[in-house]
């Protein structure tokens, strides 16, 4: 009795397995890219920890309160925040399969990103000009490493974005390009999350001391 009921069920399960085996894993790349972002997060954790330890070691040099220009940082932060929402609009256009709209919002995102990078380079140039370069004190070494690494990520994000614009123009919103847009979206929003830590811990808390 029991034998006769179990046997067909097991056979059905076997067929299910064969049918399911034909499907490919749809979201493999997105999960893999998310895992990359998590490991990138650990790099930033190490840099934040280094900055936290060294942030008071001025070696008789200037402190954050002497150096940081908060209105400039506020402008920079708003650039990155605007670029996050414009990337969101690009994703919404992509969902509606509107190639032109996707490309326009992506380009606007790139302009905001470039503006952010330009202001950061201007700030770095200004600091170096004042003699407050990374070699001045442990505090400034940690500052340049942390903020510079974030800036490097934004720079790579912009290169990726421009590459994607050319690919979109050539191939349109194919499955591969939509996957790339999702990955860049995660990368871009992740950089904005890291920047929240940077402006709070480095700039705002640095200006208080």
């Amino acid at each position: 009795m029991s034998h006769s009921t179990v046997s067909p069920a097991a056979q059905a399960g076997q067929f299910d397995f064969l049918v399911k085996g034909e499907h490919h894993v749809a979201n493999g790349t997105l999960l893999g890219f998310w895992l990359y972002l998590m490991s990138d997060c650990l790099i930033f954790a190490a840099l934040f920890a280094t900055y936290g330890v060294l942030s008071q070691n001025y070696a008789g040099g200037p402190s954050g309160a002497d150096l940081f220009d908060l209105p400039l940082v506020a402008l920079n932060t708003s650039f990155l925040l605007f670029s996050s929402i414009t990337y969101g609009f690009a994703m919404l256009q992509m969902q509606q399969r509107k190639l032109k709209g996707t490309m326009i919002w992506l380009a606007i995102t790139g302009v905001f990103g470039a503006g952010f990078l330009g202001l950061e380079l201007y700030e770095f140039y200004h600091l170096l000009h004042q003699g407050a370069g990374p070699q001045r004190s442990a505090f400034l070494s940690a500052f340049f490493t942390l903020v510079g690494t974030h800036g490097l990520h934004v720079c790579i994000g912009i290169i990726w974005l421009v590459t994607l614009l050319f690919q979109l123009r050539k191939h349109g919103l194919t499955t591969a390009n939509r996957r790339r847009l999702f990955c860049l979206s995660m990368f871009w929003h992740f950089l904005d999350v890291v920047w929240i830590g940077v402006f709070t811990i480095v700039y705002l808390m640095g200006s208080l001391s």
């Binding site: 932060t77 996050s84 929402i85 919404l92 969902q95 999702f182 705002l204």
Partner: peptide, 28 residues
């Protein structure tokens, strides 16, 4: 392939972010 997002979701997140960024800058 990815999560489905909506205009209202992005705008809500953006408004909250502006609010949560502006207040710390104002406090300092």
């Amino acid at each position: 392939e990815g999560p489905h997002s909506s205009f209202s979701g992005y705008m809500l997140g953006f408004m909250a972010s502006v609010f949560l960024t502006a207040i710390p800058f104002w406090l300092v």
